[in-house]
């Protein structure tokens, strides 16, 4: 049996189809939100959010609640807490994020030590398990994709102005603080929803890598945002195929393909492709 036939057969299995769709949805929303995240220099924020999710998962396990139910409210509260601290302390963003993320990681590991044997395994928390994605997870992801597209699409002008020059945005009547908070909450939800599939260690790659690749190929802002979302989804499809072909873990395979796309974007001649 050829490799191609084997891959086609694998993708006829329902769990592989769910994994593929889950990967595409995660890649799509990661790329879309990532396009603004990197320009607003919040890449480390998504990383910190992902790592700190371990604390949320640990608390859920300790209290005997399904970690997935704890994760989303925890991610949102955590994101709002960081935003509040950044505004109140006026410390450097990377320094403050480092404090928060390393300490919540440490506390998360301590809390996990009280939980005993976690049947899902620490590996699943760290690297995710896209093959375990259920129908209900897909519904949540699809809803979130719709919300992300709606938010970015309907407020595109405000988002671009805020990214470009905040005083100019405020002078034109954009409620900067409300928009910033809405974006952070949405980003936290994207990270929270994607962790099950991707894991806390790799989640920021979904947000950062497609956006960086799209940046290198784009000339216009609108083209950049759409390309970033598209490359996020493309990376997921290629990664799932690679994973099926070589029997590799799916999350890392997707990130590897995203890296490949990024490297291709780096070496492609800029003059031809930067007209997007």
């Amino acid at each position: 049996m050829s490799d191609l036939t084997r891959v086609i057969e694998l993708f006829q299995l329902p769990f592989m189809q769910r994994a593929l769709l889950g990967g595409v949805l995660t890649g799509l929303m990661g790329g879309l939100m990532g396009s603004f995240t990197i320009l607003r220099q919040l890449s480390f924020f998504s990383d910190a959010l992902g790592h700190s999710a371990l604390l949320g998962i640990s608390i859920g396990l300790l209290l005997g609640i399904n970690p997935s139910l704890v994760l989303l409210p925890f991610a949102v509260l955590f994101a709002l807490g960081i935003t509040y601290l950044l505004e109140r302390t006026r410390l450097w963003t990377d320094a403050l994020l480092n404090i928060v993320y390393s300490s919540s990681l440490a506390i998360g590991v301590i809390v996990l030590s009280f939980v005993g044997q976690y049947k899902g395994g620490i590996n699943n928390i760290l690297f995710g398990d896209i093959l375990a994605v259920r129908q209900s997870d897909l519904v949540v992801s699809a809803l979130l994709v719709v919300v992300c597209i709606g938010f970015v699409g309907l407020t595109l002008r405000s988002q671009i102005l805020l990214t470009l020059h905040e005083p100019l945005a405020i002078a034109s009547g954009i409620a900067a603080s409300a928009h910033r908070t809405a974006f952070i909450v949405l980003l936290a939800l994207v990270v929270g929803v994607s962790i099950k599939a991707i894991g806390v260690l790799l989640i920021s790659a979904f947000v950062v890598i497609p956006a960086c690749a799209a940046r290198m190929l784009s000339r216009t802002f609108t083209g950049y945002v759409m390309l970033s979302a598209g490359l996020g989804a493309l990376g997921a499809v290629l990664g799932m195929v690679l994973s099926a072909l070589l029997n590799l873990p799916s999350g890392p395979a997707i990130v590897t393909m995203q890296l490949a796309i990024f490297l291709v974007a780096m070496v492609l001649p800029r003059t031809k492709l930067s007209a997007v």
Binding site: T163, I174, R219, T220, T222, Y224
Partner: peptide
Amino acid sequence: DRRIPITVNELVALGWDDLGPKLP
């Protein structure tokens, strides 16, 4: 940030649109 990909046409268009949600 000079790494932000935006053309002059896009910048000027930002001044034209009304406030509030709308399709791009």
